[in-house]
Design a binder for these strands. Structure first.
Lengths: 235, 235
DNA sequence: GCCTCTATGTTCGGTAACGCCCAGACGGAG
DNA sequence: CTCCGTCTGGGCGTTACCGAACATAGAGGC
């Protein structure tokens, strides 16, 4: 057997740029390691830099009175953190927490503004991503209101799997409960149900997706809606 | 007594523009009458025009499987409908329904694109508004998840009052139930409670806010959070 | 081996919603 | 005045959660 190959991680947004522009972006920032559970930003904090995850995963969490907060966005290598800057605002509206360790391209705010000012295609692309984020946010709002925990958990697992490009990843039920805005017990029940159906396997924070098709069936339509929204804009 | 005066309605976004630019915008479009319950757009529909409400009220509703949809945004004269166009996307992500009749400035999509291409201040302003909308969407997502009907109803009434610039307006419990994503009976209970507290009065669709302070106290903090988000960006 | 810490599983009573259905009450059209 | 459509109020059983507490079980350090 050959040793485990490690593909060069990329960011799908940056991949949309012409080669020379992509190089420019890579040169404009530096590759940093996102450390699990690091809080990159809190609401109201001034944005010092933006992140284009190559492998890492960033959760966007909105604080809410009477609760521990709620995840309203999940950013992997299909997106970026720092939309407000592209919209002319330099503060974060949400808490940004590293949910999966890995590399990310980090670009200073000032430099990023220079780049989007200089490069129309880049700016256009970020704007379109902002629209996708807007759509997904609206979808999530409805999902959180109407859909049962099990379906939302299935959706979350699929979204995460898409972003880590791996059937297995690490996340405890405690953490899932925080993301979904439910009690841990609720996650235990839902996850147990999904496991009984043979869709996933988990043990002490190690989750493996066994049956992607089945998981899609168990998830609410919001998963598909999210993907469609992305695909409609980026093809 | 003097006859009821009718102030010239304005749009707070357009008011932020220099006088000559504001005139230009008014000339670029035409003033139309938003008709109650009209569906301006459905999800996926191509945007033919944008609206800057002067008096009218537009509800943004996201379709959601297993439910009748959920309101995720409310646009009065403090905002505009058509954010996607400013972000380089020409389809609506939501259903846009006229929730309060009144005048609005309507500008064709092509013309609007010309204007924001020509006028940096305008484009910047719309982008910032998009950010505010993003923040409010995140807040709403959490609010819908965690807060009880009564508090959400109070928030909705305050938001609407702000946008119609009037203590009284017309909205049935049936409609409120749709907006809040609950049963009509749930609205009956919550509205009855607010009325018992002397905060509002209602009868057959005619709602009057009697005690704004009290209503703020009854609402969740999301109302204040929304206003703060707007104020932080537009001062 | 043993201990400890973290993660998971279970149980209890409580509650804020749900869907469904029916009853009353007002107001405008005829 | 009567009729009818719209709007509001209430009851009933059900459900998916909640908060709190307690019980097991695997993984790693020593």
């Amino acid at each position: 057997m050959s040793p485990p190959q490690r593909a060069i991680a990329t960011n799908r947004l940056l991949d949309l740029l012409p080669a020379h522009e992509r190089k420019r972006m890579l040169a404009a920032g530096e590759t940093v390691d996102l450390v699990f559970a690091d809080v990159l930003y809190t609401p109201g904090e001034t944005l010092r830099e933006v992140y284009f995850p190559l492998e890492g995963l960033i959760s966007l969490i909105v604080p809410i009175e009477g609760a521990n907060g709620l995840e309203v966005g999940l950013i992997g290598n299909e997106g970026m953190f720092g939309i407000p800057l592209a919209l002319g605002v330099d503060v974060s509206a949400v808490r940004a927490v590293v949910q999966g360790a890995g590399l990310a391209l980090c670009i200073g705010a000032a430099q990023f503004l220079v780049e989007i000012g200089r490069n129309k295609v880049l700016h256009q692309m970020i704007d379109r991503y902002a629209f996708v984020h807007l759509s997904q946010l609206a979808q999530t709002a409805g999902c959180n209101r109407f859909h049962v925990v099990e379906a939302r958990l299935a959706r979350w697992l699929l979204m995460t799997q898409d972003r880590v490009h791996n059937d297995a990843f690490h996340v405890t039920q405690e953490f899932l409960a925080l993301m979904l805005g439910v009690r841990r017990v609720g996650v235990t029940r839902a996850a147990g149900s999904l496991q009984n159906l043979g869709l996933i396997h988990y043990s002490r924070g190690n989750i493996a997706v066994l049956d992607r098709r089945g998981l899609k069936a168990a998830a609410c339509g919001c998963y598909k809606a999210d993907r469609d929204a992305y695909a409609r804009v980026f093809g």
